[in-house]
């Protein structure tokens, strides 16, 4: 067990190191703004006093590394400082919105993961069948269509055409869960369609790779029933690659959510990020980027660690 623990530990360490470097990069962004932030934000006409007050408020007078560590400590506890644009605490602005974003991504994942894994496995088992070919063609569409194209087609059909679902996903704190699921159905479907084909294709490839291995052939030559070969011999070994596929796609979902939120005017973190970028509200951009990047990195880290644990050669060292 020792070697696997040390591999996991090493991977964990690399993951955390990456995360730390990313926080440095994100923090450094504000320093790279051309010119003086205070002058930039308040305009050339600002008085010396108001500039000084601004600097005081945003803590710009302390040395860089001190500011970095207090920013990092704040971020770790959910306090991201104050918005440059409207001077309100960022955590107030993005708290609920972050929750909304995770809700939407989780909703899409709950639909797409089971469908993708099951149908990817079916496609692998019935390799070359009509179903399999249909799947590989749908993948082409999924990688070629921009997210907003899929979104608007869904809106045109299910919202404008049939009137089944709203085209705007307006939710607030008081929206009940059932209503929330209904309102966000089209955005969740859009996300599902985006990741589904990828996930299916990757699952299919993982299983097909596995089925071509000599020990699977050996199991057939031992006269083992087909379902047993799949369930007992293939699946335990397919676990690592499939876990990997799922985690990678969840990471992708978290990012794909940005565009979908904009299309459906959904009050999420992505929407906030886009607004903040166009307003050049750097502190908010930093906060949103950090949340997105950290989630992405942690999901990738999780994927790697799970697939290390699922590898029998590492699990039972010599």
């Amino acid at each position: 067990m020792n070697s696997i623990l040390s591999i996991v530990f090493k991977r964990l360490l690399i993951g955390l190191l990456t995360l730390w470097i990313v926080t440095v990069i994100i923090f450094a962004a504000i320093e790279m703004l051309p010119g003086d932030i205070a002058t930039e934000m308040l305009g050339q006409a600002a008085t010396e006093e108001s500039l000084a007050a601004f600097r005081e408020k945003f803590d710009l007078n302390r040395p860089l590394h001190e500011r970095y560590f207090s920013w990092l400590a704040g971020a770790a506890t959910g306090d991201f400082g104050i918005s440059l644009a409207n001077q309100r605490p960022i955590s107030e602005l993005i708290g609920q919105r972050t929750a909304n974003t995770f809700f939407l991504a989780g909703y899409a994942a709950a639909i797409s993961v089971p469908i993708a894994v099951v149908s990817g496995m079916m496609a692998a088992l019935y390799n070359g069948s009509v179903f399999d070919r249909l799947l590989s063609n749908s993948t082409l569409a999924a990688i070629s269509f921009p997210e907003f194209f899929i979104a608007y087609i869904l809106i045109l059909i299910f919202s404008v055409g049939f009137g089944w679902f709203p085209s705007l996903a307006n939710v607030d704190v008081d929206t009940s869960l059932g209503e929330r699921l209904y309102i966000t159905f089209l955005p969740a479907m859009t996300l599902t369609l985006i990741v589904l084909a990828y996930m299916m294709r990757m699952t299919r490839a993982a299983i097909l790779n596995l089925l071509a291995l000599p020990y699977i052939e050996m199991a057939h030559l031992k006269g083992i029933k087909r379902w047993r070969v799949i369930a007992v011999h293939a699946l335990p070994n397919a676990l690592a690659p499939i876990i990997n596929v799922i985690a990678l796609n969840l990471a992708y979902l978290i990012v794909g959510v940005v565009l979908v939120e904009v299309v459906f005017v959904y009050p999420g973190l992505g929407q906030t990020l886009v607004d903040a970028v166009s307003k050049r509200d750097v502190t908010v951009v930093q906060a949103a980027c950090l949340i997105f990047a950290a989630t992405y990195i942690l999901l990738n880290l999780l994927a790697d660690i799970l697939s290390i644990i699922a590898n029998p050669r590492l699990l039972h060292p010599r």
Binding site: L213, P214, Y215, E217, M218, A219, L221, K222, H233, P236, N237, P312, R313
Partner: peptide
């Protein structure tokens, strides 16, 4: 059946 490469014909799991 006995295969050429036992290392790959046994299921590692």
């Amino acid at each position: 059946y006995v295969a050429q490469s036992a290392a790959s014909a046994f299921n590692p799991a």
